[in-house]
C-alpha cells in the first residue's frame, strides 16, 4: 500500500512538473515571436478572467458552454439509443447484418464534417444541423463498437450457455450483450470525443453561440488571447467529459481488469 501511495505521489509530481515545463516553454516562445502572435500565459489568464466575467455576443461564457454541451448531449443520447441497438442487431442477426452492413460500410467513411453543407441545406442554420452533425459522428462509432463487440463474443461462452438450456433470447441478453459491454464502453468514450469535435466544427460554420463561435469570434476580432482561452476551454470540457465517462464505466463494468 505504501508503495502504491508513493507511486501515486510520484505521478502527481511528474504531472505538475510537465505542466510547469510546458508553461515555461510557452512563455519563452511567446517572447521569441512577440505577444501579438502568441500571447504569454499571463495574457491568456487575464483575458480568461475578463471573458468569464463579461458577455460575448450578448451571452456569458457559461451560456456559450451550455449551448455547446446541450447540442452534444442531445445528439449523443440520440446516437446511443439508435446506434447501440443497431449494432446489437447487426452483430446478432445474420440476415439483418447482410442487409445493413453494406449500406453502413458505404456511409461510414464519409467524415461527419462532410455532412455540414447538406445538413444546412436540409435543416437550415438553427440547432438542427449542429445536432445532426454530432449525431452522425457519434452514431457511427456507437454502431461500430457495439457491432465489433458482438462479433467478437467468445463462442465458447454461447456454447456454455446453451448447455444450460439458455434460449436464443437468453443467449443474447445474458451472454452476448454483457460480453460486448467493454467494447460498447470503448465506443461510449470515443463517441463522446467525436461528438465534441463535431459540435465545434458545426459551430465554426454559422453559429451565434457556443464555444466554436467564441474561437471564430476571436479570429474575426484578430484577438489571439481570446482564441487561446476558447481552445483551452474546449480542451478542459473534453477532458471533463472523458473522465466522467471513464468513471461511469468503472461503475458499470466492475469485472474489467485494470490495465496499468
Amino acid at each position: 500500500m505504501a508503495n502504491a501511495a508513493a507511486a501515486n505521489l510520484k505521478e502527481k509530481i511528474g504531472a505538475v512538473f510537465s505542466f510547469v515545463i510546458f508553461l515555461a516553454l510557452w512563455q519563452v516562445a511567446s517572447m521569441a515571436v512577440g505577444s501579438e502572435a502568441l500571447p504569454s500565459p499571463a495574457d491568456v489568464v487575464a483575458k480568461a478572467q475578463e471573458m468569464y466575467t463579461s458577455q460575448i455576443g450578448g451571452k456569458s461564457m457559461w451560456m456559450h458552454i451550455y449551448y455547446s454541451l446541450r447540442r452534444v448531449v442531445g445528439a449523443y443520447l440520440l446516437a446511443a439509443v439508435t446506434g447501440i441497438p443497431l449494432g446489437i442487431a447487426m452483430g446478432w442477426n445474420v440476415k439483418f447484418r447482410k442487409i445493413a452492413n453494406p449500406i453502413f460500410e458505404l456511409l461510414r467513411p464519409i467524415p461527419p464534417i462532410a455532412w455540414i453543407p447538406i445538413a444546412i441545406l436540409w435543416l437550415g442554420i438553427g440547432e438542427g444541423p449542429k445536432i445532426f452533425i454530432c449525431y452522425v459522428g457519434a452514431f457511427v462509432i456507437f454502431v461500430m463498437n457495439t457491432y465489433t463487440g458482438m462479433r467478437y463474443t467468445d463462442h465458447l461462452l454461447i456454447d456454455a450457455a446453451r448447455t444450460f438450456g439458455a434460449t436464443r433470447r437468453q443467449q443474447l441478453f445474458n451472454v452476448a450483450i454483457p460480453a460486448s459491454l467493454p467494447s460498447i464502453f470503448a465506443g461510449v468514450q470515443n463517441a463522446m470525443s467525436m461528438a465534441w469535435m463535431c459540435v465545434l466544427a458545426a459551430e465554426l460554420v454559422g453559429a451565434r453561440e457556443g464555444v466554436g463561435f467564441i474561437i471564430i469570434q476571436g479570429m474575426d476580432l484578430n484577438n489571439s488571447p481570446m482564441i487561446i482561452v476558447g481552445m483551452i476551454t474546449i480542451g478542459l470540457i473534453g477532458l471533463f467529459l472523458a473522465v466522467s465517462l471513464r468513471y461511469l464505466e468503472k461503475l458499470l463494468c466492475p469485472w474489467r481488469r485494470e490495465l496499468q
Binding site: 465458447l156 461462452l157 456454447d159 456454455a160 448447455t163 444450460f164 438450456g165 454483457p178 460480453a179 463494468c253
Partner: peptide, 17 residues
C-alpha cells in the same frame, strides 16, 4: 444441448462479468 448434460470446458468458459 440441454441442462441434463453439464459440460466442463478445457478453457473454463466462465462469464467474466
Amino acid at each position: 444441448p440441454g441442462p441434463d448434460r453439464g459440460v466442463v470446458f478445457q478453457q473454463y468458459a466462465l462469464f467474466p462479468w
